[in-house]
Design a protein around this nucleic acid. Structure first.
Lengths: 311, 311
DNA sequence: ACCATTTAGTTGACATAGTCAAGTATTTAG
DNA sequence: CTAAATACTTGACTATGTCAACTAAATGGT
């Protein structure tokens, strides 16, 4: 379930301001090309050709947003200068696959190095922490705007790292506030649970799984020991942006396998009835509803539920 | 203390990838102008003129990175079309201040609206949470790259909101791991302290201050009640990127004033001797070192210190 | 007060970059 | 087998941008 409403004026203005800013930024970076024999567009074409072999003119025109006629002439010029070669594909004689010649690579190398150095100089002005923030922020912008760019690996699971419990607390706090109107006491509960989890962590009997997608945390779950026989699944969550990839199910499956492997007899969990999508996952994994009770928490009237799975 | 080293290859490549991506992105947004009577550059000039009055040609050329000759002709054309007016400044007869005429505003309005709508449509594809993430990430990129752009208000203080305690836990966990090599148990301690703070919060005797800079949390501090006479200052922190603005001192001052106003007799705090810059702030605010003791925590051998301020 | 230098803006001559529509050869779909 | 679509190519054109030389006014040093 995602919340969806009209983008606000402030948000739109902020994005427009960024576009203006980055238009200028790219203009500044362009000036580097001026010294070289190539224009920005030529450099973009050469970059693509240097990194992806066997492209066709159509591919290039689509990916770089160029006019086919213009591109055709660019490529002709490159071919005459011996920078690229065009060979008709056997499957389709209209198309030709374009490859960079060794001479092309030689011509491109200083260009590439120049761009590399320019960016390196830009980054070098910033302290390392800020460099990381910059790169992370750029990745975020790119991922959010580029709908086509699905990562090759949809997600991966890893154990807890420094920074995770705060991040998870932050995201869960915000998410449930936005989606269900819960107040800050929910976030506080998450903080306490996770603080205690790390503090009294028993690696033999307890475990955490963090789902990561392109370096970003998109879900998590924890198993804690209640007694020799009973383990508890806690704080299952999946980012709205990563829903529908089966991450929730996978996280619960990991918990079940772990609990079974460690010889627990029961895996239990507490949730609230309004968390419908989580509930579906629990049911699918074989959990049975043990009991329900009304309670007031997180600024709302809720129905808490205990679910059990006999292992 | 900032950590500074050579930007890594990965970081450079990520930034270059973003530049290529955003070059394309801006190209896509340009296509909107094609339908209108103005080119991207013309639109940029009009935008500046619509939003900032009394600019000179030199200002525009500098801010937008344009060739003075080219700009001169653009402005001439605009003037002929009655979109702008140029009047020589009295202070300097070489310069003329350029203002948009009502006709200019009328011509610019649909252009502006078109760009607005285009961005609105872009944002509208994303759920509200992602819109916020996008805007935040763009602001981060902009602030980090634009060295000139200092915010008008360096920072502001506000009370706790949903999402803060997780975020603060996250940042403190990461920061002390990076700067001092502390392990995840420090982050867990922060989580527990903040969870308990919210859970047992007593607004009359306790308080939090979050320092925010352009919508980003850059520091925080908490005062909790120990007894009728004793308050404790906890978890003072300032982001490396916001150090040197006097935020740390300001936060401590707020705590002292608050503790004094509530009639506490003593304000106490616990810290570790390696946190040198915090120590300086405490000393400057009149805190006296009460006692020290070696201890092992957060994966390190440390020297804990209790500091007191008699109010 | 005077002159060399700098600054703000303009203009001419030119080159580059990009657009658009009409064309050919080839493939695909019915 | 034919009409339609695709992958380019080419011609004709315009828009966009660059560069250097120029004028007029302001500034700085003596």
């Amino acid at each position: 379930m995602t919340i969806h409403h009209q983008p606000s004026k402030e948000r739109i203005d902020a994005v427009r301001a960024f576009n203006r800013f980055y238009t200028r930024q790219i203009g500044l970076l362009d000036e580097g090309w001026l010294k070289s024999a190539f224009s920005l567009t030529e450099a973009r074409v050469l970059y693509e050709l240097a990194h992806r072999d066997g492209l066709t003119a159509t591919d290039l025109a689509r990916d770089l947003g160029l006019d086919p006629g213009y591109l055709s002439r660019l490529l002709k010029k490159f071919e005459e200068r011996g920078l690229v070669e065009r060979t008709a594909t056997e499957a389709d004689a209209r198309r030709s696959s374009i490859t960079m010649t060794p001479a092309g690579r030689t011509a491109f190398a200083p260009l590439n190095q120049g761009s590399h150095d320019q960016v390196a100089a830009l980054l070098d002005r910033l302290p390392a922490l800020d460099q990381d923030r910059l790169v992370k922020a750029m990745l975020t912008v790119q991922r959010l705007l580029d709908e086509t760019a699905e990562p090759e690996v949809p997600y991966m699971l890893r154990p807890l790292q420094v920074g995770d419990i705060g991040w998870i607390t932050h995201r869960q706090g915000l998410l449930y506030a936005l989606e269900y109107g819960w107040d800050e006491t929910y976030e506080a509960l998450v903080a306490e649970i996770l603080g205690a989890f790390v503090k009294s962590f028993d690696p033999k009997w307890e475990r955490s799984w963090i789902a990561e997608r392109e370096g970003e945390v998109v879900g998590s779950v924890f198993v804690v020991r209640k007694s020799d026989a009973v383990a508890k699944l806690r704080l299952l969550y999946v980012e709205p942006s990563a829903r529908g990839l089966g991450i929730g199910k996978r996280l619960v499956d990991e918990c079940v396998s772990f609990a079974r492997a460690r010889g627990y007899k029961t895996l239990t969990l507490w949730t609230n009835d309004i968390l419908v999508s989580a509930r579906r996952i629990y049911e699918a994994s074989g959990f049975k509803l043990a009991d329900e009770e009304r309670h007031h928490a997180f600024g709302k009237d809720l129905v808490g539920q205990n679910w059990n799975l006999e292992l």
